[in-house]
Amino acid sequence: MRQHHDMGGLPAGPVDRREHDYALWEKRVDALMMLLSEPQRQLLRVDELRRNIEALPPDAYDSMSYYERWISAIAHTLLQRGVLTADELGRKLAEVEARGTAG
């Protein structure tokens, strides 16, 4: 069966040609991917990033922005590899949300 991300050739509307400048947080997500993939770390392969993006349910895939899908997939990969544990990520996330700033 065709998976949700496999959209080549399907009918779709006109191309929305509007562009946005990437926000700092999006660039940071990109930087995380680049750094984790570097040969000296090898903590993320592009196949893992893609597998974890493609594993998103269709409604999540469509409603999440591009870098939202990426950070979700990066976090999943790090959990799958045991680089991070769900506990520590959950605790840190609560701490960041309580703090409410990126700094």
Binding site: A23, W25, L32, Y67, I71, S72, L78, L89, L93
Partner: peptide
């Protein structure tokens, strides 16, 4: 669109992952 407003969930996730690493 920028980092001055309240953090969205995935932005907070980015911060959390980055700080842990």
């Amino acid at each position: 669109p920028d980092d001055d407003g309240p953090l969205g969930y995935y932005q907070a996730l980015e911060v959390a992952v980055r700080e842990l690493l």
